Simulated scan of single mutants.
Amino acid sequence: MSTTHREVYSGIRATESVVHKQAKRLSVWREHAAGYLFLAPSLVLFAVFLFYPLIQSIYLSFHLTDPRGHVAAYVGFDNFTQLFASSAFWNSLGVTVKFTLLTVPAGIIAGLLLAAFTHTKLKGMSFFRFIFSLPVALSVSTSAIIWMMLYHPTTGTLNYFLSKLGADPVQWLIDPAWSLISISIMTVWMNSGFNYILLLSGLQGIGDDIRDSARIDGSGPVRTFFQILLPLLSPTVFFLTVVSVLNAFQSFGQIHILTKGGPAGSTEVFVYSIYKEAFVNYQFGTGSALALVLFLIILLLTWIQFRFVEKKVHYQ
């Protein structure tokens, strides 16, 4: 092949290479454009209902507002300084921590026990599975109304049974010593359906050959559950722990319906403090500062759980 032919051939190959690269780049660009097109509705929803409120909250947290929510004056970090110096802030934080400790472990343990009970192949288990998963179908307001009737000081079912046992009636939602416990019991029941369904699904995802091998090796049902099944179930338990802590720190509906933060602030959790500060006292700047503090607390707790607790998780 002559030099001229080689040059022509090389030029053709170079042109083909450039055209191929441009076509490949155009194909990648079309794929990215199609991906962003499908993501566009979700991005719009996130922008409207998540990103914009977050930016607006940050902006308002550095300002004082009038009762109509209009910015009145720039105050810098004064809203945060007043929060950390307020006894109401620390009370709501303490109540939220107590509420979390009362509801999260109890809810997971209850769901685990119910899932272990109905995972057996006895007759009638399908009926119990339906009953135990029923709370997931009820809204917060419906659950709160049901428990409000149960907790009624004179006509409530719980005090009726206490009277039959010869015990004095309990002021479930009026006594500061019982109010947070009462809300926690109702919350554990309300979340039990979701916890139960996830934990039962996790147990059903563990192969029968593992149980058969443990039974052949002489392992009893209790030992098999705690030493074999529970470690295999740890990813589900970890997920439930993270979600339950998030839900506990964001609880509002049942507290607003049953106690409205009372009596004497004994059930005033963090989110209710935000609601009261912003929509009762019309202090939107302070309410926004509270919301940002809650966001940072939840972010820190989630990071701690993924950083330290996840090490105990056994993935198959």
Rank of each mutant, 00 (worst) to 15 (best):
M1S: 15
S2R: 13
T4S: 15
E7G: 10
G11H: 14
S17G: 15
A33Y: 04
A34C: 10
L37N: 04
L45Y: 13
P53A: 03
A72W: 09
Y74N: 03
F77A: 15
S86E: 02
F89E: 09
N91G: 06
N91W: 07
G94A: 09
V95D: 10
V97N: 15
V97P: 12
F99Y: 15
L101M: 14
P105D: 11
P105S: 14
I108R: 12
L114K: 06
H119E: 10
H119T: 06
G124M: 07
F128G: 07
I131E: 11
S133N: 11
S141C: 11
I146Y: 13
I146H: 13
I146R: 11
M148Y: 10
L150R: 02
L150Q: 07
P153F: 05
T155V: 04
Y160M: 07
S163H: 15
K164H: 08
K164R: 06
I174W: 14
P176D: 09
P176H: 11
A177E: 14
I183R: 01
S184I: 01
M186V: 00
V188M: 09
M190V: 03
G193L: 08
Y196T: 14
I197M: 15
I197F: 15
G205K: 11
S213D: 07
D217K: 00
S219L: 01
G220D: 03
P221K: 02
V222R: 05
R223D: 07
T224S: 13
F226I: 06
F226P: 04
I228M: 05
L229D: 07
P235C: 07
F238Q: 10
V245H: 00
A248Q: 06
F252N: 01
A264G: 12
A264R: 08
T267W: 04
E268P: 00
V269M: 10
V269D: 01
F270M: 08
S273C: 05
I274G: 14
I274P: 08
N281E: 14
N281V: 07
G285H: 04
G287Y: 01
A291L: 08
A291R: 06
L292S: 08
L292H: 10
L294E: 08
I304G: 05
I304V: 05
K311W: 05
Y315T: 13
